[in-house]
Design a protein around this nucleic acid. Structure first.
Lengths: 235, 235
DNA sequence: ACTTGTGACTTGTGATCACGGCTGATGTAA
DNA sequence: TTACATCAGCCGTGATCACAAGTCACAAGT
């Protein structure tokens, strides 16, 4: 076999490849943002044509965007073949949390061995910002928390796991806006401090333990508040 | 709030709900089968129009099927916006195997507490069939092995985790057909026996350990054979 | 008053067409 | 023979249209 290698496109002249973004990708991003932002009410039926009109496109790109989100389990396909934002149940939330403990624990442990000083500094800054803006609303808290976690997982260099975790957060995200939990409790931030300490010492086991605690403690709090909510609504 | 419950559709007259399968779902199933069967060569460009002609439909259903498979990471989107079966690398295989150990270990542990006698019997039968038809070709072995694992995970009642694991197997599947590894070694079957024993005793920790060993030992063997293959090809 | 059948309207699905980008072969000039 | 411009064909993308299934409301019948 001679040198018939595929023409690998390497970055030349320091020029970034300028991407042509397709309409259905834009539509995907837009709908995803709406989902994560808590704008879309769970159970509310989403029609393709309505979304297309709102986005100013034909039905085509919206169709593909929705289908992708269904494949990522961010949206649910009803028997009518229309899609909805699925309503979160306690069982589902519990299962997702257990998966997160397992997967994000693995990533934290891996990250501890690979994290650079630069990444560590960025995480510390994010954590400080979370503390200083502690009671500035749930939305802001959730965004900073996600950034902190994803910065950590980025350091693990596990692209496959990363995209799985992204779909998990995408499923949980919209739900967190609708649950009345007091985030920003010092308890949660304590775990983030533990993560940072463990990373600084390159202690994988400790980092894993801290992330596992962070996830499962938060999940427990939310589950409790969820049960209180539903027992109120039941009367 | 009065009795305005949603009209739950219960099976009446003993009639099963007849499902309308859409063309893009059929296309999805067909392409997926081709991927898992090892029919499609990695790196080979797949054109929408060619697939549409092969399936006897227009490009529309194929488009959606491919996009879904891309979302599930079974196919890859090239910069040209065409799709391919991604070539497996040692790094990627290693990462996926680590994710599998973590996730399928969790599911095995959960399954141990929930598995019914019926499910256990079915798994034993599958295992015996694997032993008896041990050297009846790689394809048969892989199919039985997958059935064994999925029967186990089914018992865990974790639908979210299940669909994640399915996408992982979908990524690994086509690769296993092209790697020249001697499957069906007694070592692998030993782990399956351990799983069955642990399940019978409802020992979650043991079940997890056996599955973890099964996955990581197989992964190691494949990785070794992969390295031998690539060092041969490099000369 | 309640049920049931009918109609118009909406929705998802799939086919077809048009357009721009990319690829590869052909022809021309050095 | 080699290098480069050109052009034709193919590919993905998106718009539009046709169609069948589904939904909802109104009215007729019990």
């Amino acid at each position: 076999m001679v040198a018939s290698s595929t023409p690998q496109e390497r970055p030349a002249f320091g020029l970034a490849r300028l991407e042509r973004e397709t309409l259905h990708e834009r539509a995907y991003d837009e709908v995803k943002k709406a989902i994560m932002g808590g704008t879309i009410a769970p159970g509310e039926p989403m029609t393709i044509r309505a979304l297309a009109k709102a986005l100013g496109t034909s039905v085509m790109p919206v169709r593909e965007a929705l289908r992708r989100l269904v494949a990522e389990r961010a949206l649910e396909l009803l028997p009518n073949r229309s899609v909805t934002l699925p309503v979160m149940t306690a069982e589902k939330f519990d299962e997702i949390s257990r998966i997160r403990v397992s997967l994000e624990g693995l990533m934290a442990e891996t990250a501890a061995k690979l994290v650079t000083a630069d990444e560590l500094k960025r995480m510390s800054k994010l954590n400080e910002e979370m503390i200083s803006r502690l009671r500035q609303g749930t939305k802001r808290y959730l965004a900073l928390n996600q950034e902190f976690h994803f910065q950590l997982y980025q350091a693990a260099h596990m692209p496959q796991a990363m995209s799985i975790v992204e779909t998990l957060w995408l499923q949980i995200g919209p739900f967190l806006h609708h649950v009345s939990t007091d985030f920003g409790q010092p308890d949660f931030l304590k775990n983030h401090d533990q993560v940072l300490k463990a990373l600084a010492r390159r202690d994988g086991a400790k980092a894993r333990a801290a992330i596992e605690a962070d996830i499962s403690e938060a999940a427990q709090t939310i589950l409790d508040s969820l049960k209180a909510q539903s027992s109120n609504a039941a009367q």
